[in-house]
Each structure stands twice: as structure tokens, then as C-alpha cells.
């Protein structure tokens, strides 16, 4: 791969080959290793921790060139979900299979990421847990950090 800010590696998850991206995407990121992939690509983005405007530009322009490829995004973290909501072309022709939604305890402020599948976030309204008990303090309720319409705004794109 690429540079020491972003690691791209293949893993097998539940029998499915996925390409995992870990780290930050910026002006130095080289996506060319993804060109070697033939057939549908399952990109696991759970390890992406940050992205800046030049990284977004590189991402958008790279996938624009790969318009014919079938690409799936899985386990998108909040930083990626935010870009998908702000910039429709960020998703391009890829299919978003699952995203992580950030929950926070109203008592101890423990944070937890909850995986939401496409059939759940595509529903109107999104079929997500409104609240659940905090497993850490057991005194508070975990609730989505931010509004669901705002967080899942990428659905409209």
C-alpha cells in the first residue's frame, strides 16, 4: 500500500473477502492498489479515522473513474457517514450496506457505536434504537448523538 497514514489490506469476514481501510485519507493517499481488484469490491471503512478536503477530492475522483465497478461500503464510521451526507458524490455509485451510528449515555457520557444495516436506515423513519440502557453505568440511557434525520441525511442522495 499507499502511505503510513492509510493501510489497505484484505481480510476475510464471515467468509466474505473485504478490503479494509485503516487510518486517514488525505492528499497523500494513493488508491491505485484498489485498481488491481476485479469484480465486486466490499470496502470495510470501519478503520477510517479521518479525512480532509483533498482526501475527499481524491476519493471522489478515483471512484468516478471506476464507475463501472460494483462497490459496497460496509461498517462506515461516523466520519465517513458525515462526508456521505455532506457530499453526495462521495458515495458515487457504491451501495452503502451498513453504517455505525454513534450513541452516548446521558448519564456517564460513555460512547458506543451501533451497527445499522441498509434495510434499517433506509426505512422512513430510520429503524434504529431510540434508546437503550448504558451497560457501563447502568444508570443512564444511550441515545443517538445528534438527530436521526441529520445523521442519516445521506439516504436522500
Amino acid at each position: 500500500m499507499e502511505n503510513d497514514k492509510l493501510i489497505i489490506e484484505k481480510v476475510v469476514v464471515n467468509g466474505q473477502e473485504q478490503i479494509c481501510l485503516k487510518g486517514t485519507i488525505d492528499e497523500d493517499t494513493d488508491f491505485s492498489s484498489l485498481l488491481k481488484e476485479n469484480g465486486p469490491m466490499v470496502l470495510n471503512l470501519s478503520g477510517v479515522t479521518g479525512i480532509n478536503s483533498l482526501g475527499i477530492r481524491g476519493w471522489v475522483n478515483f471512484w468516478k473513474e471506476q464507475a463501472g465497478k460494483k462497490v459496497f461500503y460496509v461498517e462506515c464510521p461516523p466520519v465517513i457517514v458525515r462526508q456521505m451526507s455532506m457530499i453526495p458524490s462521495f458515495t458515487g455509485t457504491a451501495e452503502v450496506v451498513s453504517v455505525f451510528a454513534p450513541y452516548i449515555c446521558d448519564h456517564c457520557e460513555t460512547e458506543e457505536l451501533v451497527l445499522v444495516r441498509s434495510d434499517e436506515f433506509s426505512a422512513t423513519p430510520p429503524q434504529i434504537k431510540e434508546t437503550f440502557s448504558c451497560s457501563k453505568c447502568q444508570a443512564g440511557e444511550m441515545e443517538l448523538d445528534g438527530g436521526p434525520n441529520q445523521y442519516f441525511a445521506f439516504r436522500k442522495k
Binding site: 480532509n52 478536503s53 475527499i56 475522483n61 455532506m86 457530499i87 458524490s89
Partner: peptide, 30 residues
């Protein structure tokens, strides 16, 4: 560049432009 729609599709982020435009857009959004 970042809000305009053309023929119903979002225009891409052109490589000839510097990154400043997208950065301003992101600051405005966030």
C-alpha cells in the same frame, strides 16, 4: 462547485481546482 446540480447529477470535484473550495464548503456545512 459543491452545491450545483447539473442534469440532475452532482458534478464531480474537478482536479484542476485547488482544495480550498471544498474546505470552505465543509466549514460552512459543519
Amino acid at each position: 462547485r459543491c452545491y450545483q446540480r447539473k442534469n440532475g447529477r452532482e458534478i464531480g470535484i474537478e482536479t484542476k481546482h485547488s482544495g480550498a473550495g471544498l474546505g470552505l464548503f465543509m466549514v460552512f456545512e459543519l
